[in-house]
Design a binder for these strands. Sequence first.
DNA 1: CTAGGGTTAG
Length: 387
Amino acid sequence: MKGLCRDERWEDAGALIAEMVRKDCPPDEVTFNTVISYLCHRGLVDCAMEVVEQMPKYGCKPDNFTNSALVNAFSEHRCVDDALELLRTIPWKPNTVCYRSVLKGLCRADRWEDVGKLVAEMIRNQMNLDEVTFGLIIDCLCQKGLVDYGAEVLGEMTKFGCSPDIIMYNSLINGFSENGSVDDALELFKNLSCKRNVVTYNYMLKGLCRAERWEDAGKLVAEMVKDECLLNEVTFSTLISYLCQKGFVECAIEVFEKMPKYNCMPNVIIYSTLINGLSEQECVDDALKLLNDMPCKADTICYSAALKGLCRAERREDAGFLESATEVCELMLKYEYMPNVFIYSSLINGFAEQNRAEDTLKLLRNMQCEPDTICYSAALKGLCRAK
DNA sequence: CTAGGGTTAG
């Protein structure tokens, strides 16, 4: 059942339940809760509710698992007030997980007063306020820029027998570097009361990269290796994307080339980032080489990044880059990738600037997608320039 | 056997 749900094969899941009934092996709460929780995760809240209504027919009653899934889905996919209302209609004392799902919705909606009230209610009901609950609140505060409050909650929670753990520290480090100063983040990073993990390092790295503190970033990675903390794909993605963004594409390439040494495989997004970076730095040949040597399948964004470089080069040097651009387009079609409107408009514009009205028109007429205004304008430009 | 706090990117 779990497998079918994970693959979103809802009809098969329904058929399986029917089969269970037929074979005298009736579905139980666990069966239903599995289906319900997956439906909820996919945002199919109405379907989930329908399944809940089917439960009594099979002698099953919704329990804490059912309700926490629904409350969570209401919080995420609907209005958090629906979640709150559902919490109130549960005919028994809902457990911490159910409460926490509502808290999550309230935190995300920035309804801190209501968060406080609900926490007070939990305390009144002598419910277990655990690390997970505090971790959730701290992270939301940090994400909303209320890092100081996050730090305050971290201090207060010891009253409830909770001690700070690495997940909370990670949220705070990220919060400080995004919404405060990266030095505050570093300060905390250096004085943690528990062992750092790869997420800690990656957050810290992101902060340093954003601040363009490349030397510190380099030192951090060295420290990571020394600490025997394995660099992962996030580490590399972070470095590569920030280096490209800030115009240091050569460094990004160096980092990229080190990936295999750390058992990390670059994915299509990393490739498109690099191709785009090379195109923007007017290294179109390198961009094309990277595109051609990709071990994974290139997607539209990779192609359009390369085309961007080609079209720029064309404008600059009056060379035969548009021919390569057309070739790239053909390559795309060969691999059954649809060039998108952006690609077409770049190409049409490229031909127009070369006064090649015929090619411009031909391209416009043979487009594999709906031309937009920019395509038409570019074609018009070609026609006008050719007289 | 089911639920729950933290990473990256075009």
